[in-house]
């Protein structure tokens, strides 16, 4: 607090100057923060624009076929991004199927259920998962997890789920351990720390008065979580999920190792596929024709668009959830 104002109430010349200085400081502060925010927007638009510009040759040559075509032939110079787009979305969706329930469980446990002494160590362990470089996940996936999938999980899946009418085609094919499912599971493990630590933080930020009154009314811990904590933090929880989804869409190195990098379209989750980020990482160094290079940059632009669409859908969902809550 400003002690001088209180002790010297009769010093009028002093106060306007201070007020003036404060507004000048305020203005500078506003410009600085606005500048920072606009800079982000500028960088974003500039990145999208430069990728669209770099990919213009591919877009002009192939038109809509670039999005709907599944050819990826550097010799015949025909490029279509359908397989990588499909692979990116499917592997990320599998990741979310795995990461969201587990993250929710971790966050609820850490915020509501766990005894205080255990929260620190488990919270730290989850955050350490986020500190592991993605190439380590990739190598672990290739050398440890893929053989495990090939020898134990995939034969079981093919045997039990393969004959089923609708699910069947998703789980057929030789168990090679490398493919969409393996990539999705690894991505799921990688996104857990991002989703769960945000969820835990927002759960812990629920006003204690709310929870305590629910308990006072005789609610069980399960009822408190379901009826107080989650409704109160709904939008932040959805935000956390899409933060993880966005990360899964763009993940490159770990996916490249275990996805199989094959440009053929296959319904089975056990077969190799490709993702946008993996295709760019694999092929950029040796893209030896102008149209090939342009197709890869255009692929980067499409990743941008896909991520943007996903985040826009998240925003819409958020608005609807908020409206329903009122």
């Amino acid at each position: 607090m400003d002690a001088s104002v209180i002790t010297q109430p009769d010093a009028p010349a002093f106060r306007p100057r201070r007020a003036h200085a404060a507004t000048r400081g305020d203005r500078a502060f506003r410009w600085l923060t606005a500048g920072a925010a606009w800079l982000v927007l500028f960088v974003l638009v500039a990145a999208a624009a430069s990728m669209a510009w770099g990919g213009r040759l591919a877009f002009r040559t192939f038109g809509w076929d670039f999005i709907t075509g599944s050819d990826w032939d550097a010799v015949g110079q025909r490029f279509g991004a359908l397989v990588p787009i499909y692979g990116t979305l499917v592997s990320s969706a599998i990741a979310m199927l795995i990461a969201v329930p587990i993250s929710l469980g971790i966050a609820i446990f850490l915020a509501e259920v766990a005894p205080r002494w255990i929260r620190g160590p488990i919270g730290l362990a989850v955050e350490l998962l986020a500190a592991i470089p993605s190439i380590i996940y990739g190598m672990w996936g290739l050398f440890v997890f893929a053989p495990f999938m090939a020898n134990h999980i995939e034969p079981w899946l093919t045997e039990r789920l393969g004959p089923l009418p609708i699910l069947g085609p998703l789980f057929s094919g030789p168990p090679i351990g490398i493919g969409m499912l393996t990539a999705g599971i690894i991505l799921g493990i990688m996104t857990i720390p991002f989703i769960s630590s945000v969820m835990r933080d927002v759960f812990q930020a629920v006003p204690p008065a709310l929870r305590e009154s629910a308990f006072a009314l005789g609610a069980t811990p399960w009822e408190v979580v379901r009826k107080v904590t989650i409704p109160h933090t709904r939008s932040a929880v959805i935000g956390a999920i899409f933060l993880g989804f966005g990360r899964a869409l763009g993940e490159t190195m770990a996916v490249t190792f275990v996805l199989g990098n094959a440009h053929d379209f296959s319904v089975s989750l056990l077969m190799p596929g490709n993702s946008i980020a993996a295709a760019i990482a694999n092929e950029f160094t040796e893209a030896d024709s102008a149209i090939y290079l342009s197709a890869l940059i255009a692929l980067g632009f499409l990743l941008f668009v896909v991520t943007f669409i996903v985040l826009a859908i998240a925003k819409l969902m958020l608005v609807r959830v908020e409206r329903k809550a009122r």
């Binding site: 050819d71 990826w72 032939d73 550097a74 010799v75 015949g76 090679i176 490398i178 493919g179 490249t256 190792f257 199989g260 990098n261 094959a262 440009h263 053929d264 190799p272 990482a281 694999n282 092929e283 040796e286 030896d288």
Partner: peptide, 16 residues
């Protein structure tokens, strides 16, 4: 398929 430093493979998985 033809020839080049990268081609459209009819079958298989790709290693980096």
């Amino acid at each position: 398929v033809g020839e080049g430093t990268s081609v459209q493979w009819p079958v298989g998985v790709g290693g980096k």
